[in-house]
Design a protein around this nucleic acid. Structure first.
Length: 454
RNA sequence: GUGGAUGUAGCUCAGUUGGUUAGAGCGCUGGUUUGUGGUUCCAGAGGUCGUCGGUUCGAGACCGAUCUUCCACCCCA
């Protein structure tokens, strides 16, 4: 017991039962992505640290998993670096690779690296694990899967519309009730400008974003702690607490931002997206939330976040537009917009609400009981016949007690058990037992296949 | 990274102010039934009490360290 093996903190094994359900999520998401013309892409788990560092803010750098260099890496390090015991400086000397933190930055790197082979707009989806050296909590893991869709090389807000449609369709297919919150980084910047605190945009928006969680008093307290003066906080109140329809909010914010060129640009963008939205059926509620702030380190336009309505779990999907992500890697004027579905949290939501369809836990449809050598030889071709007909079937691999074989079938939720002994072989028929009703009757293999194919 | 809780059989949990061979339910194995699972009844296996160290005549209970899981902050999917 003491030597029981284990896995690192915040990582998980996925049992077959769980994998079937996870694949259901991945397949559903993938099918929607394909419907909108996105193509698959994969990038390595490891990137050069130079690609990753500085893209997620100071906090992000700390949460990067770094990979130690191979070989005798310490021998090349200067003595004074070792004696200094400065972890950050030393890290630069002994590690040059890191595990990816998200899929967006590696994607931007890919686009820049392969710019001559790509024709724009470039639409890709990517479903892979990412790693964060965060302290784990419920719904928060150190290794988790993201399902990203992005379009780069197009400024059109039709792309934003498509992202919203994808969110709508994915959650409709998964049967999860959600609200899609939308905001615009330019509006946030405009607000900061309008209250005379343009340089404090990050502090202001991060505090505003916590409204739902900590309430208005605490938001104001945090703003004051960050050095925002009373007058500015006062001006912010009507914005933070703004209610009403999207149109109303847009009208009000338009008035507030009328002197901010950038802010007005954001208002226009949102207006255009809402206009586009009127042309297609989208059932998901799209709510303009002026306190929404995400990915401020690289988003420049729209910001999206999706929350499940029936479960308390934080956001299950997030994204936005980034105008200059490829610029960091030397490719200017390539704007992108994308969104990321958090598969692990979606899983938790579906598990809690019992939304996985029954079929997802069914593996084998038909099991043949094994009665012995003679029967085995007789049944093997029959099992194969079922498989050829596209029916998943298996024969119990040894002629152990029947109770054990039945038990196996029962636990695996196998729908039918076929029994072929001496009597059946003489008649050239099989006994088929329906495991849900308990009914059992004698028929030919062809009749059985015919029934199953209906 | 900071602060706080937690850890006893495969699972969910009991275990009184430190005191003999640590319990229950579910699950598992076998039998009741040598061609019938999911329901009954009977029997059985399984724990160096997260790990390491300390206090004590004696520790599952107390102390320290470490790990896990969870919660808050930070940030985020």
């Amino acid at each position: 017991m003491a030597q029981k093996p284990s896995i690192p903190k915040g990582t998980r094994d996925f049992s077959p039962e769980v994998m079937v359900k996870r694949n259901y999520i991945f397949d559903t998401i993938k099918s929607v992505f394909k419907l909108y013309g996105f193509m698959p892409l994969e990038t390595p788990s490891m990137e050069n640290l130079s690609t990753l560092m500085g893209k997620y803010g100071e906090e992000g750098d700390k949460l990067l998993f770094k990979v130690l260099n191979s070989g005798d890496f310490l021998s090349k390090v200067d003595h004074h670096h070792l004696e200094e015991k400065n972890s950050i400086k030393l890290t630069n000397k002994i590690s040059e690779k890191g595990l990816r933190y998200d899929l967006t930055v590696p994607f931007a790197r890919y686009v820049v690296q392969h710019q001559n082979d790509i024709s724009f707009p470039f639409k890709r989806y990517q479903i892979q694990p990412v790693w964060r050296a965060d302290r784990p909590q419920k719904g928060r893991y150190r290794e988790f899967y993201q399902c990203d869709v992005d379009v780069v090389g197009s400024n059109s807000l039709i792309n934003e519309l498509e992202i919203i449609q994808i969110v709508d369709k994915v959650y409709k297919r998964l049967n999860i009730n959600v609200v899609l919150k939308i905001n615009n980084r330019k509006i946030l910047a405009g607000i900061a400008e309008a209250i005379g605190q343009a340089d404090k945009i990050i502090d202001i928006t991060v505090a505003m974003d916590k409204l739902d969680k900590i309430g208005i008093e605490n938001v104001n307290k945090e703003l004051a702690e960050k050095g925002i003066d009373h007058e500015a906080i006062e001006k912010l109140q009507p914005i933070i607490l703004m209610e009403g329809s999207n149109e109303n909010k847009l009208d009000v914010i338009k008035g507030i931002l009328k002197d901010s060129e950038l802010g007005m640009k954001g208002v226009e963008e949102l207006q255009e997206i809402f206009d586009y939205l009127k042309t297609v059926p989208v059932d998901t509620e799209v709510e303009l939330d002026l306190t929404l702030a995400r990915g401020l380190n690289y988003y420049t336009g729209a910001i999206f976040e999706v929350k499940a309505l029936d479960v308390e779990i934080g956001s299950i999907t997030g994204g936005g537009r980034y105008d200059d992500l490829t610029g960091i890697f030397g490719l200017k004027d390539v704007s992108g917009v994308g969104i990321s579905f958090g598969a692990d949290r979606i899983f938790d939501v579906m598990e809690q609400l019992n939304l996985f369809p029954e079929e997802t836990c069914v593996s084998t449809q038909v099991m043949f009981v094994n009665f012995g050598e003679k029967e085995e030889l007789y049944c093997l071709p029959l099992v194969n016949k079922l498989r050829d007909a596209g029916i998943s079937a298996e024969m119990f691999p040894s002629s152990v007690k029947m109770k054990k074989q039945m038990n196996y079938a029962n636990k695996k939720h196998i729908a039918y058990v076929v029994m072929v002994g001496e009597t059946e072989m003489n008649e050239d028929k099989i006994s088929v037992k329906n495991m849900t009703t308990g009914e059992q009757d004698l028929k030919t293999i062809d009749d059985f296949i015919h029934i199953l194919k209906e």
